[in-house]
Amino acid sequence: MFEARLAQGSIFAKVIEGLRELVTEATWECSGNGITLQAMDSSHVALVSLVLRSDGFETYRCDRNMSLGISLTSMSKVLKMMGKDDTLTIRVNDDSDAIVLSMESQNQEEFAEYELRLMDLDSEHLGIPDTDYSCVVKMPSTKFSRICRDMAILGDSVTICSTKDGVKFGAKGDVGQGSIRLNQSTNVDKEEDAVSIELREAVALTFAVRYLNMFCKAAPLSNQVNLSMSEDTPLMCEFKVGDMGHIRFYLAPKIED
């Protein structure tokens, strides 16, 4: 049997909202260590990797490793029925072909239970190599979301140039062109508002802005986003999930022909 309980069920709902535009169905791997998921988008230029460690849940029980094929589209619809302060329990009984989502209101006066049928999905598990990136930009996730949304108005691609002093996002298209430059913060009251850059080598990489906007659906999970970049290497865009894990998105840079 598998059972995991999260006092703040809304965190799980945000995780699903962060994934479901990029991948509509995916296999969840459940083990004693926690829940992991890895999936590629249908065009095979982006990959997402999710980790939710078992110690981040209020209670967690996983008697044997399980692979659960789940429609994220359906799960998202079910989770929309959850109250914002509800506790969420996810359960899979032995020999069951369904996942059970139980939602309990904070005052314990309302209890809802939904079952979703599990799917048989083919999944190809790719290894993600440890990479020493040339540059890691940390910035407020709301700011990154706004910039990606604005850049999409100008063109299909966004070029991210990073130097030790700052990071510049630029786009151009039929309507015109534009760029936004953020300097590294020197003095901020709140760490979550800071822009910081760890740099070994300056980088300039171009990405499809449509994908960056899909990644930004996970921005409500975390105040900050980490953008790790090296020339000719997929971008890693990371949002932390509280203290319990992370969502990492990988995106192929565009190559000039």
Binding site: V45, H125, L126, G127, P129, P234, Y250, I255
Partner: peptide, 14 residues
């Protein structure tokens, strides 16, 4: 292509 280079960055563990 971008896709081939992207996939070659990752590997399929055996």
């Amino acid at each position: 292509s971008s896709r081939q280079r992207f996939l070659s960055f990752f590997f399929i563990p055996h």
